[in-house]
């Protein structure tokens, strides 16, 4: 790099195999959309598993819905939709070169994402504490299995049961509902975490003044990713919390 001056100005982020910033942005965009397509298929497997089990065991879903608190889900839905707004806003701010708004909206997105995970933490903690966990470990399934649970665990499991299910017959292998719940929301939560890491990275770069009207690709790409994470939740919320 000795004999060559570092490219300056708006072209400093232009990689050498592209002719123009526009070509570079177009390439990133097509790459990002393809990645999002693969994300949809990644979750698609889980949605299929959900559908197959729902079709074969509707009673399981009917019983299971009462364990999920729709108010928590609704709060998180509002939180994520707001965060998508601030993510979209941050792209606009970057394009306009409005660094102050950019930083503010990046922070807002990051905080809302964090709020989502805090709510999710309380939901998980409640279920795990009561023993309403996945598959073969689910406490309701093991109530009648001699020696599998301690008396304390049985008491805990029963005391936390939602009142609505008291008169319902317990479906076989109820734990599968919670497997699907935990895997789907868990994978989604992992995506939220990754999104947060990306927003921390964007904040650092925004602080350095990297972004402006000629170079805003990363803000744009991360926002696209963030919208898909939001969108997946918008499907998860009614499927799991609302339509038992």
């Amino acid at each position: 790099m000795s004999s060559h001056a570092k490219p300056s100005g708006d072209r400093r982020f232009l990689q050498v195999h592209f002719e123009t910033m526009g070509a570079q942005l177009a390439a990133s965009k097509s790459g990002m959309w393809l990645f999002l397509a693969s994300e949809l298929l990644f979750f698609g497997g889980l949605f299929t598993a959900y559908a197959v089990y729902r079709a074969n065991h509707p009673d399981m879903y009917h019983y299971g819905q009462y364990f999920l608190d729709w108010r928590m889900g609704a709060i998180n839905t509002a939180v994520l939709i707001s965060s998508s707004l601030s993510a979209a806003w941050s792209v606009r701010a970057a394009q306009l070169g409005d660094t102050k708004t950019l930083k503010a909206t990046l922070w807002l997105t990051l905080l809302l994402a964090g709020a989502f995970l805090v709510v999710k933490y309380f939901e998980y903690a409640h279920k795990i504490e009561a023993g309403y966990i996945w598959g073969g470990e689910h406490c309701v399934d093991n109530l009648k299995v001699a020696g599998k649970l301690t008396e304390h665990q049985i008491e805990h499991c029963l005391s936390a049961l939602p009142p609505e299910v008291a008169h319902l017959p317990i479906p076989e292998h109820m734990g599968r509902f919670f497997s699907i719940y935990f895997v789907m929301t868990g994978l989604h939560g992992l995506h939220v975490l990754i999104g947060m890491a990306l927003y921390v990275w964007l904040l650092r770069r925004a602080g350095r003044g990297d972004f402006g009207p000629k170079y805003f690709g990363p803000v744009d790409m991360v926002a696209l990713y963030w919208h898909i994470v939001d969108m997946i939740w918008i499907f998860l919320f009614p499927l799991l919390y609302l339509i038992g």
């Binding site: 693969s38 994300e39 298929l41 990644f42 979750f43 698609g44 497997g45 889980l46 598993a49 996945w134 598959g135 073969g136 470990e137 292998h173 734990g175 599968r176 497997s179 895997v183």
Partner: peptide, 19 residues
């Protein structure tokens, strides 16, 4: 990605008995 989620589910099934 569908293979990815399949083997991930297999992995979790083996460790946590998802059912």
């Amino acid at each position: 990605p569908v293979l990815g989620i399949t083997v991930a589910l297999g992995f979790l099934e083996r460790l946590f008995h998802l059912g």
